[in-house]
Each structure stands twice: as structure tokens, then as C-alpha cells.
Amino acid sequence: MHQYRTDMYEGMLAETVMMEGHRGDAINAYFARPLGPGPFPAVLLIHHMPGWDEWYREITRKFAHHGYLATSPNIYYRFGHGSPDDVAAKVRGSGGVPDDSVVGDVEGAVGLLRSLPYSNGKVGVFGTCSGGRHAFLAACRLKGLDAAVDCWGGNVVVPKEKLTPSQPVPPIEYTRDLSCPLLGLFGDEDQNPTLQQVAVLEQELKKHGKAHEFHTYPKAGHGFFYYHSPSYRQEQAVDGWKKLFAFFNKYLSS
């Protein structure tokens, strides 16, 4: 965690920017960074199924507050605009955002972050819920990421009958291609992923010799970081954030 002193200067810039995403499409992204010359490590945040919402903006700023260049691309950009929940409902009704589109948007965002003159060149990826699944998927399908955090990503281990045209391949099948260390945070009461599915994923990571660190919290279900929902678990969330920042600090520092 960032160590603050009461006499230190602190500044941050946070704004919406345009970036190049999948297939060169222009999409918008929320970007926050500490003021100063850097160099800073970067974290790319992949938003969850409820959309490109206030919580993701908040944690984008939280990463900047902790010394990271942070950007959250709007992976629902192509579905139109409105309130985050209206857009997310449209995506939900359309069968979800295509995996290829998300991976392409992440690739574009990584390029943007690395191109910045105040970047240290290291980029991590983070996501919760469907974004956790996407973080794992991106870390497998893209080369050059430095760390990945999957928070309770469901449908990484998924039976064939649940595959869809938008999500045609179980992400676990890409495990051999995982290109960076992975941190997984899960709750033992979650129904997707279940404890068994987490164990299956961890076994696959071990089989392929992939560096990983999994933590499963007791008395926590899906989304235990979400302070605005009944799923919030204060003690588990505080510890999860500590582990998450320690992990990124280990792999993204200059």
C-alpha cells in the first residue's frame, strides 16, 4: 500500500479520453494518473457485467492514488450510450460482449499506457466478475502483460453447453498461454466460480507451471469488494486490496 505523509504533495488527473480499441475502433476510456514525471507502472481495469459504472471510475482513481497510471476502457462502447445500467442491460440482452472485442480493446489500452512518457513500461490487468474472466483471458491471449488479477471471474471453467457465439472458448483452455503471474481472489460461498472450479483452474495452472497466487476468503461470495451491495464483506475486502496492491507492487515496480 502507498505510504503517505501528511506533508507530502499529492495530485491526480482523471478524465475521459478516446483510445484505439479492437480493430482500430475509437472507444472511450476513463484514465487517471498521478501528477508528476513518473515513471509510473500502469494498471488496466476491465469493468464488470453491471457496466462501465461509478465503482469502476472510483477504483480507477484508487489505482492512481496508489501511484499507478490507470485506465478503464469502455468495453461496451459499441452497444451505444446511456446510463451504465441501461447500456449493460442492452449488452446482457444481446448475449454479452464478444471476447474478441474485449481482448482487442485491452490490447489497444496496453499500447496506449506503454506509449505514455511517464510510463515505466510495466502494465498489469485487473478485473472483477466478468471482468475477472476477461483479465485472465487477456493475460492468456495477449503477450507482454506483466501481471494479472482475476477477482472472482466466473465462467473461466465452463461446460461446453454454456458456450455462446460471443464467448466461444472456455478461457481455461488458454491456460498454457498465460504470459504473466496471476493473482486470484475468490469467495468460498461463490456459485460461479465455485470452490471446485477454482481448484480446477489452479490445477491447470500448476500443470503448465504458471506463477500464480490464489486466495479464497471464508464467508464471502461473489463481489465482496462491492461496498454498495449486500455482497460486501469488509474484512475480506480490506485484506483482498492489500494482497492486490502487494502483488502489483511486486511485479510492476521499476
Binding site: 445500467d85 441501461d86 442491460a89 446482457r92 440482452g93 451491495s229
Partner: peptide, 27 residues
């Protein structure tokens, strides 16, 4: 997941008109 209801999972119904965009929704 619901967006607003205070339960972990809910039965969600969205009435929409595709031509009018995401904002025109009865949820």
C-alpha cells in the same frame, strides 16, 4: 446480478425498443 435490488440475484425484465437505443428501457 441486479443493478439496484438488494439481493445477489434477481429476475430482471427489460422491455426495449431497439431502434430507440439503450436509454429507452422499462426495467
Amino acid at each position: 446480478h441486479p443493478f439496484d435490488a438488494s439481493v445477489e440475484h434477481s429476475l430482471n425484465i427489460d422491455f426495449v425498443n431497439h431502434a430507440e437505443g439503450p436509454s429507452l428501457r422499462i426495467a
